[in-house]
Design a protein around this nucleic acid. Sequence first.
DNA 1: GCACGCGATGAGAGCGCTCCCCGACCGACG
DNA 2: CGTCGGTCGGGGAGCGCTCTCATCGCGTGC
Lengths: 345, 345
Amino acid sequence: MTETASRPTLEAVAARAGVSRATASRVVNGGDGVREPLVERVRRAVEELGYVPNQAARSLVTRRHDAVAVVIAEPETRVFADPFFALQLRGISKELTAHDSQLVLLLTEGRDDHARVGRYLAGGHVDGALVFSLHLDDPLPQLIHGAGVPTVFGGRPGWGDGARRAVYVDSDNRGGAREAVRHLVGLGRTRVAHITGALDQTSAVDRLDGFRDVMGDADPGLVVEGDFTPAGGERAMRELLERCPDVDAVFAANDLTASGALRVLRERGRRVPDDVAVIGFDDMLPVAEQTDPPLTTVRQDIEEMGRLMARLLLRDLGRRTGKQGADGGPAGVVLPTTLVRRVSA
Amino acid sequence: MTETASRPTLEAVAARAGVSRATASRVVNGGDGVREPLVERVRRAVEELGYVPNQAARSLVTRRHDAVAVVIAEPETRVFADPFFALQLRGISKELTAHDSQLVLLLTEGRDDHARVGRYLAGGHVDGALVFSLHLDDPLPQLIHGAGVPTVFGGRPGWGDGARRAVYVDSDNRGGAREAVRHLVGLGRTRVAHITGALDQTSAVDRLDGFRDVMGDADPGLVVEGDFTPAGGERAMRELLERCPDVDAVFAANDLTASGALRVLRERGRRVPDDVAVIGFDDMLPVAEQTDPPLTTVRQDIEEMGRLMARLLLRDLGRRTGKQGADGGPAGVVLPTTLVRRVSA
DNA sequence: GCACGCGATGAGAGCGCTCCCCGACCGACG
DNA sequence: CGTCGGTCGGGGAGCGCTCTCATCGCGTGC
């Protein structure tokens, strides 16, 4: 067939259409300012030759790449393997595709990788970056911020001052937590406990804050630290039952934690939701729907988060005439959450 | 700081090091044939200037991109959101990173996207492609095969003839299934059933074949079609219990299916594994470890699959002197599976 | 009917890099 | 000490494209 025989160039298209390279270029790039008959001729030539622009040559002169890096920091098996990132990637991918941008995926684990990512971004291979970094002490966000690449963060970045200027998209962790806890209170529960997530992540901190917004610091014994895993949920639940046997409701930092808690509750003969009501967070379907009983939880629209991140970045890239948007910028966009009532609360 | 002020070029590095552009280039690309003192001078200049090669300019002349596309076809929520792809991506990413290649992620759903992907790959933006396509009738593999881009498939592609020549990496679905079923037989079970996966996917077909390898076609009533979902597993299990109440073992096509089956079994008062032994497939941790009882299952090393795919592709790219490896090539590489014994069988 | 103006087209200069090829320089041998 | 062979460094072309600028042709207004 069409062997690897070097692909046709703009020059070839122009020749076949009987126009100059410049005109052919104009048509390929939208065709403004070229009269209809010529446009038609060029289009046909492109078709017949199977012409595809050489992106490298184009980038060389435009300094644009139509590519965005997605950086996912430290994909420990547990974290990365949950459907979270898959959904975000879907959302991001859809939005980027709609704008003819490519998605360059950068997965990192560990310091060496950080340096590599930093170099890559600073190297100007992509127009911008979407960064997921879960840990408060992760140096990556700062590093990237310093690289001078337009960036949008997924989830509120945890670093002090700079965070204020960073653009990010996050779920309303605090508000969602409040809603969950209020729901429990509305059910008439008085001994409401919270199993936190890994507190080195902003989402865990924010959910804890939401819990406290409603419950205050009344009984510190009702807050137990978890780590977003089922095992952590089990451990925390055991501790909780020991410390406060009269607990009648648990708000778990995520669904996985809740599933662990549920197991302990069942094992100890506590009925859910009769004796103890349980609420999770995430609405991670394979988990939330499969627990026994099905889990009431706070849903966040993960895919939409991804889409929004991409949209924000693309918008920023679009109006990159001057320097940084000096308009004091919209630091963060926070997406609403919704309480999904199933059986457990 | 270092404003966006155009990044330093090779020219600048050469000037600072007091050598020619060509020499600087040689050093940047390995430094063969340049004497030590000069190498050192250039290296320092690179360092001081913070020089990063312009990939576009380089690609323009070398026709290499150091980038590989990963195509994931039809990421329906369910499919894409399971940890499967995340793990494969990890494996792929690690291998690519080790070879200084970038990972361009292409997610598709539907026909339009296919065309887009085809165009992108044919456009020569990447050196090769890693393709995941789950459905037997998916036109994508053929389309890509036709695009003339070096490709490795994830999972045995389902299309007729061409498949024979395609390079792919797969788990030993058939062998794993055999092992699972033999284990059940070894437990003394005589009425062993199989809940299949979605039979438009090669993995489901292969697992069914493995089941038949051991059980023959003895009792066709013991094979029920599922769809890889928990709901499908429930439905199939109900049908099975109705049709063959004396069933004493179930080999489910994957863990999700098994979790659905387990639920029905529990609901019907059948004890697992005492009355009915159950085995899944995948060893998808969040599921297999959380079922009640914990699931015995067939583990496949997903991350390794990804890594292997990347390695195969890179190797192929490396020796791309002539045309396709005319050595009749190693069509497929099949990774072994292992039976993980937990409680359910 | 003629001059002016504006929009459409073509020519050409690079973008930053690699790589070919020639010139120069070094050491060694006669 | 002269000359020849081998090796290393520099000059230059050109990858395919975009974009500026000059040119051309047409329409319009007086």
